[in-house]
Every structure is written in C-alpha cells, then in structure tokens.
Design a protein around this nucleic acid. Structure first.
Length: 877
RNA sequence: GGGCGCAUAGCUCAGCUGGGAGAGCGCCUGCCUUACAAGCAGGAUGUCGGAGGUUCGAGUCCUUCUGCGCCCACCA
C-alpha cells in the first residue's frame, strides 16, 4: 500500500501540530552540559504588552535560523526568551485606559496603580510570545524571563547599589530632557529630532541708563522670562562696547549682563543671543562658564510657573503670543522671519521636549565607555555588517552621562532612601531600617523608577541568573550572538556591552548581527499613522510561517532594509509546494521490496550526491558568516533546478522500470539528497522540512537530526563533468526542437559523434536521459559520421557533434547562419582566453589554478572551432 | 557640519575574500508529459549612476561628481 499525500502543501494542517510536538518533546530546552559546546542567544525582549510586527518577525526568524542550525551541528543551543516591562510605553497605555474610565493614576495611588499595571501585564503580556511561537521560534520557554520578575529585579538593585558605591551613579541637578506629556525626564537617546517650520522673532532689550536697544533673534520668545544674560561674540566689534553693561528684561524687570562668549555665531541673526540657562542646553553651558543664575520658568506639564510673573499658568504657546504682543507694544519688536529648524520630540509620544533643570539620577559614562571602545578596537566584539562599528564607536566617543531616573511608577523603583532628618541618602537593595549617616529611622524611598534600558542593559546576564553564580551563567555566558535592528544600537546594544564588561568582566556577546527595517511595497516605513503596516500573523494565516520566513530572508543582505511584497509570498508558497511535490514523488516509489542494490550508483546518482555535499559546505560556511540570504538562495536553486528539474527527471525511467537493477540506488539517492537538503533548509523553513522528514523520510525529528557536513569522500568530479556534458547536449536539443517547432510529443532521433571513446561511452550510457529529457530516441553514437546536408540539424558541444535528423525542417541557409554565429562566439572566446594567456602580467601574477583553467578552456574552444568549421564545410557542399 | 547606505534586466533585489553579469516577479513562444499548471520546456532584455585611477584583470578596491535615503551633531 503506497502512502498518499495531498497534491498541494497544506501548511495549516502542519505548523501548529509540529510546534506542539516540539514543545512536548522539550526539544527547545537546554541545560548546562560541560560535555557539549554551548551556543547562546538571548532574545531582544519585546515590550510585554506589544504586538508582533514585521521587525520582530525578521529579527526572530534570524535568531531561530542560527539556533536551529547550531543545534543540528551538535551545539548545546539555548535561546532565552522574554519580555521587557517597557516602562514608558506601558505606562502610557495604562494611563490611557484609565482616562477612558475618567480616572487618573493619582486617583488610584501608587499601590492601586501598580496593581492595575500588573493586571494589565497579566492580560496582555505574553501575547507576543505566543505570536513568536507561530513563527516557529525554538525558544527555551522554560527559561522565559521578564525584566520585572524577581531575579531580574534583584540584578537591577544589585547593579544600582554597586555603581552608587563606586561613585558611578550620582544624583545631580542638571539640564535634562523633559517630556511634558509623559511628565518625566528622558535620556538623550530618547529624543528624536524633527525638522519643523518655525519662526524667528527679532526682539530687543534696552540698555540700562540709555535709550539704546540691543536686538536679538529667538525661536522661543517666551523663554525670555528666564533670561539671565545677553551674549555676543568676543571678536564682534559691533558690540564690544556693550560687554559688561546690563540690560533690563521687560515683563519681569530683571537686570542682566551683556557677556562675551565664543558660542555666539556673529553671522546668525543679529549676532546677539539671549541666554536662558534654565531651558536650553547651549545656554546652560554658557551659564556655567559665566556663573549665570538659572531660572526655571516651567511647570511639569509645560505651563508657565510663578517665575513667569503675570504669565503664571499660561501654556507656552499662549505665553509666546502674549510676550510678542507685549514687546510690540513696548516698541521692542523688530520683525518675524520664517525659519526651518529641528525640534526635539519624545520618540515614544511625539511631544516636544522641554529642556529644563531637574534633580535626577545619572550614570557617569566616561569610565564605562572606555572598555566598550577597547573591546571593539581589539576586535573582540565582532559587528556585522562592519559599517555599524563606526556608529557604535562614534556614540561611545561622544557619550554624555546617562539620565536614568524616570518620574513614572511602572518600573524598578530606585533603591535610594532620603533621610528626613539629615537629608542624606542611603542606598540599599532592601529598605534600610536607619539612615546610615545619622541613624534616623525617618526614611523615605525615592519616588522615581529607573529607565527601562537600565534593566535591558543587564539582559544577557540577568536572564542567566546573575548576580548569582548559577551553572547557566558559567556555561552559557558570554552569549554568542546578538541579533537586532540597527535602530537600537544606542538604546540597547552599547549599554549591554559596557554593562556586561563592567559587571561580569566579560563582553555580553561575541558577535552582533544587525538587520534592516522591513518597509512596505513602496519603500515607506511601516507605521501606525500611515496605516501601511502588514501584520505578520495575517501573512502566516494566508501563507504559513515557512513562507513568511523565507520571504523575509531570501534575497536580502545583512543590515539592508527590504520591502514586503505579497508577490514575494506567492513565490515562497510555490517553493513550498515544489518541495512538497518532490517529496510526494519520492514517496510514490518508496516501498519495501525494491529490486537491486542500493550501492549500485549511476553517474547521475554520484553527480547529485556530490552536488548536495558541496551545497552543505557552502551553506555551512554562509551560516557561519551570517550570510543567511545567500545560504537559502543556494538551497532554493539546488532543490528546484538541480534536484527537481534535472535529477528527478533523469531517474524517472529507472523508477518506472520494474526490472531496472539500479532502481533501489535511485530511490536511496533520492532519499539521501532530499534528507540532506531538508536538513540544510530546516533552520530556514522548520515546518515543511520537519513534515517531509517525519512523514516521507520516516525520521523521528529533523530538529534533533545531524547536520550534513561536507564529506570529501562524496566528491565525484568525473561524474559531475559527465552529467554537465549530457545536460548541455540535452539543452541544445531542446533548444532546436523549440526553434524548429517540433512538438514536444514528437519523438526524434539523435546521432552523437565523437572520436573520444570515453565520451562515446558516456553518451551510450545516457541513452535514457535523451529519451526522457529531450524525447530523443534511437540514439546512435558513432566515431565518425559523414552524412550531412539538408537531412540533419547539427551542433557542436565539448568533445562531440550532435546530429538531429529533421528532414523537411532543415533550411541550409539558416543552418549556415547558426554555425556562423556559433563560430563567431567561439572565436570571441578564443580571443578572450588567448588574450589572457598571452598577457605576461596575467601569467606572472594570476593564480596557477586560473591559468590552468584558461588553458583548458582555450583547448576546448579550439577543438569546438575545428568541428564547427567542418560543419560549415559540410553545409556548403 | 560629521558619518553611513543605496544607485545592477520593465519591477523588487542578490552578487560572500577582485578572475567570464544572476534570481524572483513580469513579458514572448510551445506544452493540462503518469510529483507539482502554485507546473514544464524554450526565449528576449543590462554602457552594473557619470568621470578618473589602482591592477595582468574592477559590478566588486581608491578618488571625485550626480541623484535618493538614513544616522549623529548643531540650529538665537
């Protein structure tokens, strides 16, 4: 009884079933095991309440490919999954949900709010991890982690306390980026710069004791309320006389000095700058140099505060308009110009960032950055593609202290306790009973939480149990490769590197593999606002995970963006179907009592075995170099072109002939080649390869099967040449058939003439190929063949001339043209080869292998030319 | 201002350390051939953005220009 399979591959009946089986068999689980070599990846943790998007699909497909390949290659492969609490994003969502109920987080209080947040996390959290399972990810789900779970929180506290004790974490009052919408400070990395249309107002202050005005240009008139100086360039002769004098800021009637500072660009505006140290980073620096007072004029929500005098409570927008009107009425308004300038916005919510002074916690970066720079310069950290190394270095070389405190509730609360008595700080992992400075028991914990990235920075080792000395830490750390998008180099990658180096003394990973962004069909970024996003789950629903995976990987190169196109999905589906049908075909002949010896291999068998062996070599190498797109393209071409279009067609006559004594060998070869190519393909398309492996090839699971490494013994150079020769003859015959409009169903004869006994032998043995592949029968292979003229169409191949008796279809003129064209081509080839071989530079410097190849080719073409000439002569007779 | 990427067939893109230009889709022709019409066979299409240079040899390396895109910094 032969097994029957559906004609078309039905991924829907396969994917979930296989994934469940893998889970049940615990194939994804890894334990520390000193007898095997570890291979470790930690997942870039998605936001706990996030939804899967194309970026995740690509990122995790790449990791899954590496994990599955390494596992088959004998490594003890561990992929640690988990989620990030995503402090700001999650808090935004919860606050939004509360708002719909007409509540604020203050209404609930800190405790009530956190309860609500955890509920939210329980409801929506993990959803994204289930979505990863749909893609086929071989994560060790037993080791799932969350940045706010007990172990990881402990790591966060440990790091904070250590770094505080080392003086690497400090609290300071500095100008920070403030998001009035989220009402929290954010780090420099979280500020996006957008080009916006704005205005440049020219306004003036009056010099004290005179009627003279000094006019300046500003894009933010309302900040004049916080001005504490006017500045000019020290080299600017126009204003040299005014330096040292004072002017009065109207509205608030404050006398401020005119100072000289290099910061001022003489060419821009009027050459005079108002200095607002409390609300501008550059002005802040100027203020430090000149000991200027700092005035904060803004509330947390971005409205004006009491320092704004009568504008107290105004929004900045209203305040700006009012100020401009007031200057106008005072005769201090000159003009308003249009100006394009960039505005800092919060990358999470899009709100315009207000720089302002706040007391915050910072990580001192200079010393931490150094080892991270060295580890890259010493080539101990390998960045792929290498160009991203420059971005990495550039950021580290210009690094500023990292603002890590956030005025939020969802996150790791800062373990710092203020003494109400002496005002000093006690930092401790657990709530201290007394102030370490004065012994008072009146302590209050800092209200702020830590930047999400503070905990993500520890992810590669906190997930393995650090700070405890766990077996996992010892065995799986440092991890092998980090796979992520280039858009989070600053947020995450760099912070993991310096954190890993500082806390564990080792780099957190050996390699970093960056990928690009998946754009829409027009090349635009997928975004919620454009509504052009494509849901990977929808794609999986329609085409299956394998098809999605291959579409994301094939034809792409590391670090480059790519476009999602549905047509590409069709192509991938077709490939799946092709594989499925080749397997189905093999199954048709796979029965228990087949005649013949499996070892009775023909040239074709040896040829395809040699080919797949070579494929294993290349794919293994490509994988090691992270050339995933190249690797899978090679497998695709091998399976479709070589295996299906040539080999399977070649073995058909043997399979359909019950008496053929090489039938068993053919089936064995088919199965070997299918097995090996499925194994090579498995990391890329885990489901169909497993389905073929288990249902057609009767294996237990391809996941735990052995990788087909290159085996020198399987190399068959002679057979490769032989089959290639046959292929070229067949192709030529097909070509002529098409040209002469000989119906595919019409049988023709063929005569192959060669003086070379070995070649004659090859073709004699290949008679069946000509029947099945070219519908050419009665093949004769003489040493000499003189009949020519209008009875035959002929062509020359390497070492032989092929004659096709096509009486009635032969047009001598056209045959002459064909032969002339062929001759022309050969002459060109000969010229090219001779050119190289007569070039002394080439002979002296080119590798010997290349010279030999060219020499061989030259001889071959010369022989073919000779035959072509004979052909021409015969035609002209 | 500094840096990076892209420019290759009509479209989307590969091309791994320099050694005879490729794929998918689309297009044309012929085939429902007993694995697959989601298929088979055959075919057409490229000044590899322009200009220099290095080299025996350049799509690949260097310089420069043009166009598009991105990142960082600055922007009174």
């Amino acid at each position: 009884m032969k097994k029957e399979l559906a004609k078309n591959y039905d991924f829907k009946s396969v994917e979930d079933r296989l994934y469940t089986n893998w889970l049940e068999k615990k194939y994804f689980h890894a334990e520390a095991d000193e007898t095997k070599k570890p291979f470790t990846i930690v997942i870039p943790p998605p936001n706990v309440t996030g939804q899967l998007h194309m970026g995740h699909a690509l990122d995790n497909t790449m990791q899954d490919i590496l994990i599955r390949a390494k596992k088959m290659q004998g490594y003890n492969a561990l992929w640690v999954p988990g989620c990030d609490h995503a402090s700001i994003s999650t808090e935004l969502k919860i606050v939004e949900a509360l708002a719909e109920e007409g509540k604020t987080k203050e209404d609930l209080g800190r405790e009530g709010y956190l309860e609500r947040a955890w509920q939210w996390k329980e409801t929506y959290g993990g959803r994204i991890l289930n979505q990863l399972q749909k893609i086929g990810c071989a994560c060790d789900w037993d080791r799932e982690r969350f940045t706010m779970d007990e172990g990881l929180s402990d790591a966060v506290l440990e790091v904070f306390v250590r770094m505080y004790d080392e003086g690497k974490i400090y609290r300071g009052e500095k100008l920070i980026n403030w998001c009035p919408n989220c009402q929290t400070s954010i780090s420099d990395a979280e500020v996006d710069h957008e080009e916006k249309e704005g205005s440049l107002w020219h306004l003036c202050y009056v010099i004290d004791g005179t009627q003279e005005k000094l006019c300046f240009a500003t894009t933010r008139p309302e900040t004049m309320l916080g001005d504490t100086a006017l500045a000019v360039n020290p080299k600017d002769e126009r204003y040299a006389a005014f330096v040292g004098k004072t002017v009065t800021v109207p509205v608030v009637n404050r006398k401020i000095p005119v100072i000289a500072d290099d910061y001022v660009d003489m060419e821009f505006g009027t050459g005079i700058v108002k200095i607002t140290p409390g609300h501008d980073p550059n002005d802040y620096e100027v203020g430090l140099r000149h000991n200027l007072p700092v005035i904060n004029i803004m509330n947390d929500d971005g409205t004006m505060n009491e320092n704004a005098g009568k504008y107290n409570g105004f929004t900045s927008k209203d305040c700006r308009a009012a100020i401009v009107r007031e200057f106008d009425s005072l005769g201090l308004f000159v003009k308003k110009e249009e100006l394009k300038h960039s505005v800092g916005v919060h990358e999470r919510c899009g709100e315009v960032i207000e720089p302002l002074i706040r007391k915050q916690w910072f990580v001192k970066m200079a010393e931490l950055a150094k080892p991270a720079i060295d580890v890259y310069l010493n080539k101990e950290l390998n960045i792929v593609p290498p160009r991203f190394g420059k971005i990495y270095l550039n950021w580290l070389n210009n690094i500023k202290d990292w603002c890590i405190s956030r005025q939020l509730w969802w996150g790791h609360r800062i373990p710092a306790y203020f003494c109400e008595k002496c005002g000093k700080i006690t930092v401790s992992k657990t709530a201290p009973e007394k102030c370490v400075h004065c012994g008072s028991e009146n302590l209050k914990q800092d209200e702020d939480v830590l930047d999400t990235w503070f905990s993500s920075a520890l992810w590669p080792f906190s997930t393995l149990g650090w700070p405890k000395e766990t077996p996992e830490m010892k065995y799986f750390y440092p991890t092998d490769v980090l796979v992520t998008g280039y858009d989070i180099i600053f947020f995450w990658v760099i912070r993991m590197v310096f954190s890993g180096l500082h806390h564990t003394g080792q780099k957190p990973f050996k390699d970093v593999l960056f990928h690009g962004i998946i754009r829409d069909a027009q090349g635009r970024k997928m975004s919620k606002s454009l509504g052009n996003g494509i849901d990977p789950l929808e794609v999986i629903e329609k085409y299956g995970a394998d098809a999605l995976r291959i579409s994301l990987i094939m034809g792409t190169s590391p670090g480059n963006d790519s476009r999602f196109k549905w047509e590409k999905m069709d192509a991938s589906r077709n490939f799946l179907n092709k594989i499925w049908n080749s397997a189905r075909f093999i199954l048709m002949f796979d029965s228990e009592n087949i005649k013949g010896d499996e070892a009775n291999l023909t040239s074709a068998d040896k040829w395809i075995l040699s080919k797949v062996n070579n494929l294993a070599l290349e794919v293994t190498e490509n994988l090691n170099n992270y050339e995933l797109g190249l690797a899978v393209t090679k497998i695709y071409n091998f399976l479709w072109d070589e295996f299906c279009d040539w080999y399977i067609e070649m073995v058909k006559p043997r399979l359909y002939n019950e008496d053929d004594d090489t039938k068993a060998a053919a089936i064995a070869t088919l199965k070997t080649v299918l097995t090996n190519s499925m194994k090579l393909l498995h990391p890329f398309m885990p489901f169909i390869t497993e389905e073929v492996y288990t249902s057609v090839l009767s294996g237990e699971s391809i996941m735990i099967s052995q990788w087909p490494f290159y085996n020198e013994a399987l190399k068959s150079e002679k057979e490769e040449t032989e089959i290639e020769l046959v292929k070229s003859a067949v192709k030529n015959i097909r070509n002529i058939r098409a040209e002469k409009n000989v119906a595919p169903s019409k049988k023709i004869e063929a005569v192959i003439v060669s003086e070379d006994a070995q070649i004659r032998d090859t073709f004699t043995r290949s008679e069946n190929f000509f029947k099945t592949l070219a519908n050419a029968f009665n093949l004769t292979v003489p040493e000499k063949f003189d009949i020519c003229g209008d009875e035959y169409v002929s062509f020359v191949i390497d070492g032989a001339v092929v004659y096709l008796p096509l009486a009635g279809l032969v047009d001598i003129e056209k045959e002459l043209q064909r032969a002339e064209k062929e001759k022309e081509k050969l002459l060109q080839e000969i010229k090219r080869a001779e050119g190289k071989l007569k070039n002394e530079g080439f002979l002296a410097k080119a590798p010997q292998k290349l010279i030999d190849e060219e020499t061989e080719k030259l001889e071959k073409y010369k022989a073919m030319l000779e035959k072509t000439d004979e052909q021409l002569n015969a035609l002209r007779r």
